[in-house]
Design a protein around this nucleic acid. Structure first.
Lengths: 203, 203
DNA sequence: CGACTTCTGCATCGATCGATACGGAAGTCG
DNA sequence: CGACTTCCGTATCGATCGATGCAGAAGTCG
């Protein structure tokens, strides 16, 4: 499957897998999983449907690989944010990264993890569940980071890490929807800053 | 088109338009505009495709009428919230209504206005723009209500009504995404309450 | 070079997409 | 009743959906 070190093989692939994945990511990002047809995808990737199936399996597996790439690429701000020294820093970095990524010029507006497959037909529920798990995983990682902040005394002892994580990720998903609606980057940035003006929230 | 008062006509329609719209609304709500096929729609509506086209025009017009019904039905909490006496009451009612509607048992999870057509193919951009306008209109109405609250002294004079409206609607859209991901109603309700713990936010 | 492996372009598969044509059934009038 | 209007069931349209079969081109080995 991957790169052979020195094995005897045949004709090498005529295109760059990484670049093809990048192109496919932009198409899925803009049109969603079901809104992106094979014709549109392969045209953007510069390959034929045959090559796509040989290299990636099928459309759903292509999307799964695209999502991995998205997580380590445009959505990498999440992992970086979790490494901020304070919980407030985490929240700030997370929202700032969300605004930046969902409103980047010359990129599709919004977030692939949100608009990739929110509501789909029966045949797309696998991808729908995949993205729901992706979003919930993000929330879980933020919660665990906030729990650590409580343990370390960075957050008050009466703080509910789950509630706080739900709050921050709800803002992030909401920002993604606003961005997909065409809302300006600066307005979202100002809103995100103001939303963290009182910190932390508590029940 | 509509009801004749006493004119000479032929055979009356054999199904209830309102009930057919209600059924169609549930299908669009669950599967989105493009994820809902004519076969699924008409089966749920209990009519044939011919009857659907005769009564509603085409799929996009059907969706437009469904959206009107959704606005005056499941999403009517917005109009009611705007009539609350205080800006905080407006925000509270809006978020409470969002949580209630997006997590109602025996109903599709999430919000039709959000997941109906966030990312679509080229042929669906008309509906995509329609829903984006629907969301932005909701934000505008909240902003105008908050502006009134500033004028009346209900909100501090240095409050930015647009910022505040963007904050509340971002939370609402985020709640809709969380609900579509399967997040529990009580958790979202607690989060929404806590989010309004510090009020109002300011730049 | 010649055997071998893999990739790729073309054509096409059955299924489904949204949308219609047609004709008979069903109901409302004079 | 009989003329007229509308509705509806069946069958089907061309286009597109995701997914393959096949054969030849292209590259890597001995």
């Amino acid at each position: 499957m991957g790169k052979r070190q020195s094995g005897p093989i045949g004709r090498p692939r005529g295109f760059d897998t990484d670049e093809a994945l990048e192109r496919a990511m932009l198409v899925f990002w803009e049109h969603g999983y079901e809104g992106a047809g094979l014709a549109t995808l392969t045209r953007a990737m510069g390959i034929s449907t045959t090559s796509m199936y040989a290299a990636f399996g099928n459309k759903e597996e292509l999307f799964r690989k695209v999502l991995e790439r998205y997580t380590e690429g445009p959505s990498a701000y999440l992992a970086r944010a979790l490494e901020e020294p304070t919980a407030l820093g985490v929240a700030r970095a997370l929202l700032a990264g969300t605004v930046r990524t969902t409103t980047r010029p010359a990129h599709p507006a919004g977030c692939l993890g949100v608009q990739g497959a929110l509501a789909v037909s029966d045949s797309g529920q696998g991808v729908r569940d995949l993205l729901a798990a992706w979003r919930n995983d993000g929330c879980t990682r933020v919660r665990e980071r906030f729990q650590r902040a409580v343990d370390e005394g960075d957050l008050p002892p009466d703080t509910d890490p789950g509630l706080l994580a739900r709050y921050v990720t709800t803002l992030a998903f909401g920002i993604a929807v606003q961005a997909a609606s065409g809302v300006d980057r600066e307005e979202l940035r100002a809103m995100a800053d103001a939303a963290l003006g009182n910190w932390p929230i508590h029940p």
